[in-house]
Design a protein around this nucleic acid. Structure first.
Length: 179
DNA sequence: TGCACGATGAAC
DNA sequence: TTCATCGTGCAC
């Protein structure tokens, strides 16, 4: 499998989000096919963590593209994002669900369960995705699919940003967390 | 130094 | 609709 190059992530976040669908997320001996994601467009996007500026937690979002932004949510789950666009722009794509491909145990529907099943935790925060043990790759073979677009989950507080269709998933895939 | 609150998931 | 559970961010 071919690991996605840095240039893949150094592009418009919405394009990266849509292109991540169908790709393989690999961590150690585990692999999952990405079937649902959400785009967080930068400091101006009120639903994005980077909207409150550069902080200890969000500094990875402000860094170079192609790195993982992993944080703990509600004191019990981890969420994984892929940092996009040029350094300093602070945008990212949240991985919400994967389809089990290899050595994945348990449910993978939802960002928290996805990380649990893939063995992803805070140790992988800021990890470069152009590495040998944790990366995203072009799948060996891929059949055509339709991309569905819906509002993001759990960001009702973000005003008009909450209404935008920035969640993307593979239409008809049974591993998508929510329709 | 203290405290309110989540880009969740599961139970009721 | 409620709750578990804790790191982060900002108020004091």
């Amino acid at each position: 499998m071919r690991t996605l190059p840095r240039s893949f992530y150094d592009r418009d976040t919405i394009l990266v989000a849509e292109d991540l669908l169908g790709k393989y997320l690999v961590h150690a001996d585990r692999a999952g096919r990405i079937v649902e994601v959400e785009a967080y467009l930068g400091p101006h996007d009120l639903a994005a963590h980077s909207a409150r500026g550069l902080t200890e937690r969000t500094k990875v979002m402000f860094g170079p593209p192609g790195h993982a932004y992993v944080y703990m949510i509600y004191g019990m789950y981890y969420c994984m994002n892929v940092v996009t666009e040029r350094e300093g722009h602070a945008s990212a794509v949240l991985l919400r669900a994967v389809e089990p491909i290899q050595n994945v145990n348990g449910r993978t529907q939802g960002p928290g369960l996805l990380c649990k099943a893939m063995g992803i935790d805070r140790r992988l925060n800021a990890h470069d995705l152009l590495s040998d043990d944790f990366y995203i790759a072009e799948p060996p073979k891929e059949k055509p699919f339709t991309i569905a677009k819906r509002p993001r989950i759990g960001v009702e507080y973000a005003g008009r940003w909450a209404k935008r269709h920035l969640r993307f998933y593979i239409k008809g895939n049974p591993f998508v967390s929510r329709l």
